[in-house]
């Protein structure tokens, strides 16, 4: 009975140590991934902050890591770290159901020897210190990179939203920024029929510019409405746009 309690206690101690390790691992994962995404200016999902996404992944990582660690539990870990328990713990575990003089003597002996055993003996203190230092360093780097706005990539890329401009290229030089039906103008005074609006952007540039090359055949930037149904406000907006273009 006492020996069973002892074995359970040893397992609990092992789990405690591994909870610490798994937490540190997931924090490290979070910080490394967060810093990495910030430096390369990648936004994984347009509608979801990287922070929430990484926090979720880190929690999953923590659970899986902890599960893997507890599955690797062996009494031999204690025996390796405490030579006075070598072979004794295993023997006690394998003979738990025995109730004779020799087994009782063994159990007494194990209890006696186990008094000097603490979870400290199985804590990989060097590794934990290294991980804590790693967490500190990553926190520092994260703060520094935020303050100094260090980005390896100039513009933010969105992994799961098509092109870097957020639009679609038709391949023949035309580029559609988005569907006009998605324009949100709830708070606007404009009265419009979204199916009747289209934007045709034209302009000039150096044809050697690789980003402009597909559109090099266009010479002018035009803004036009495709319907007569626009009200005064929309008409006014169009005039403003044309005026700005002429001013430029």
């Amino acid at each position: 009975m006492r020996i069973e309690k002892l074995l359970k206690q040893l397992k609990r101690e092992f789990i405690k140590v591994n909870v610490i390790q798994a937490c540190l691992d997931s924090i490290l994962f979070f910080l490394i991934a967060n810093l990495g995404l910030f430096l390369v200016s990648v936004e994984v999902f347009r509608d979801l902050s990287n922070m929430y996404l990484l926090a979720g992944i880190s929690v999953v990582f923590l659970i899986l890591d902890l599960y893997w660690r507890t599955q690797n539990y062996r009494l031999e870990i204690y025996e390796e770290k405490n030579p006075e328990l070598r072979e004794v713990l295993r023997t006690a575990r394998d003979n738990l159901d025995r109730r004779n003089v020799a087994s009782q003597a063994l159990f007494d002996d194990v209890m006696d020897r186990a008094r000097s055993v603490t979870s400290e003996s199985i804590i990989p203190s060097k590794t934990i210190i290294q991980k804590i230092l790693g967490v500190g360093l990553l926190c520092f780097l994260t703060v520094i990179s935020g303050v100094a706005d260090i980005n390896l990539q100039d513009d933010t890329r969105n992994i799961f939203s098509g092109d870097r401009f957020g639009g679609e290229s038709s391949g023949d030089g035309n580029f559609t920024l988005g569907n006009s039906s998605r324009i949100d103008i709830e708070d606007s005074n404009l009265s419009y029929d979204s199916s009747n609006i289209s934007f045709n952007v034209q302009g000039e540039s150096d044809s050697s510019d690789p980003e402009i090359r597909p559109y090099s055949s266009r010479e002018n930037i035009l803004y036009e409405s495709s319907t007569e149904g626009l009200d005064d406000s929309a008409e006014l907006a169009r005039e403003y746009s044309v005026a700005i273009k002429e001013f430029e």
Partner: peptide
């Protein structure tokens, strides 16, 4: 015969 022995041994 009662002396305990670990399974791996």
């Amino acid at each position: 015969r009662q002396v305990p022995i670990a399974n791996d041994i």
